[in-house]
Amino acid sequence: MTGTFYVQSLDLACGALVLAAVLVLWRRDLRAIVRLFAAQGVALAALVAVLGVHAHDAGLVAVAAGVGVLRGLLLPLLLRRAMRAGGAGRETEPLVNVAASLVVAALLALLAYAVTRPVVALEPSPATHAAPVAVTVVLIGFFVLVTRRRALAQVVGFLLVDNGITALAFLTTSGVPLAVELGVSLDVLLAVLVLRVLTTRMHTAFGGTDLDDLRELRD
């Protein structure tokens, strides 16, 4: 893979990654959100694959395939099932409206670039230059987690954070070992399964999955 093509494909994958995250903020239809999340999973897999091909590392390419299957197919499938069990397919009014959310996303991207400067300066390379994108995805995911009301949207927020962390791990290190990636992926899978069960239970118990209805359970 030649230098320019590598950089351009890397940038394309990163762009898709962050675009998917921002679009999650924009859309209110839960089905669309899950689709966006699947697209992001594919982008992440592409990113890892590009890195693997560039480094001539077959193991990394295999990891990319695994990431793609898990985040592009399996997790969206699970989320879709939870949605079907959970009823209403639209996000209610989020705590921060869409326009403000997009502005905040821009600010978060700014913050991510400011914060990762030392990391980039440590060893400037096309991969590390893309690290701020991964941090942006983490921050946006966290923001989704904070502002969205539906349990399913929150799960997607959590998964965005995880996608961002995974991307950061691949961009700043010279390849994550298969065992580590496998462990992380299994953790995520397990978390999603648990959250899915929880969402279904919430729906059967309270008739809705708006988390703000749950505050009476506190003491």
């Binding site: 914060v115 966290f142 923001f143 987690l145 904070v146 502002t147 703000d212």
Partner: peptide
Amino acid sequence: GSVHRYLGYGFCAFTGVLIVLA
């Protein structure tokens, strides 16, 4: 008791630390 508020605390603390770092 609001989950959002708790998450908001975490988010603000996290971004706050990042801003201070930056």
